[in-house]
């Protein structure tokens, strides 16, 4: 039997990018920190776009440790949400516009988050990628790595646990 004809690339790209954009741009705090996401297939890299207001130590200067923690946590939550919603985005069950307005679509909740500060964050853009160590029905465990100029020299890493959104029961 012949396989179904693949969708045109632009249709696939447009659907995925619109969904990711809705997910990220719907969150005021992500806009406040000016974090954006690069997508290659299903793989996400977050970018912390540098701004003076992210500085924590004006004498070095260095990025605020709390900003680093927040950047890693945002990366973990968005990556986890993306992986969680991806099959329903691909099947067309979820439309980009629904992601922020639909009350049945919820973000995973952070249970705990531990950040290791390996180097001071330089006053320039930073990048991060989250790796889902385990995604269960209720709990997920995520590791995040962040770097700046040199990917091999991480400036921070984190691990966290998350409570996954529960599907509304059939009873409603």
């Amino acid at each position: 039997m012949a396989r179904p004809r693949p969708e045109p690339m632009q249709v696939v790209k447009q659907r995925r990018d619109a969904a990711l954009k809705a997910l990220v741009e719907g969150v005021p705090y992500i806009r406040f920190l000016n974090i954006s996401f690069d997508r290659r297939g299903d793989e996400l890299t977050s970018v912390l776009n540098f701004d003076e207001k992210l500085i924590g130590n004006p004498f070095l200067p260095a990025i605020h440790g709390g900003v680093t923690a927040a950047f890693l946590e945002v990366t973990a939550v968005i990556t986890l949400s993306w992986e969680h919603l991806f099959p329903r985005i691909e099947s067309g069950e979820i439309d980009a516009e629904d992601i922020i307005s639909d009350h049945n679509i919820r973000f995973p909740k952070t249970i705990d988050f531990t950040v290791d500060y390996l180097r001071s964050g330089l006053p320039r853009d930073a990048y991060a990628r989250a790796f889902i160590s385990r995604a269960g029905r209720r709990y997920a465990s995520v590791r995040v790595e962040a770097w700046q100029d040199n990917h091999a020299k991480l400036f921070a890493q984190a691990t966290g646990h998350f409570l996954m959104p529960q599907e509304p029961s059939a009873k409603g």
Binding site: V27, P28, R31, G56, H64, G65, G66, A70, F113
Partner: peptide
Amino acid sequence: NADLIGDPRTGVIHGGAVSASLDTCCG
């Protein structure tokens, strides 16, 4: 502050902003 909201459906402040405040306070 509305700029620090993590979930626009509920208006709850993002955990990251709470982390930043805790980190500053610890320092």
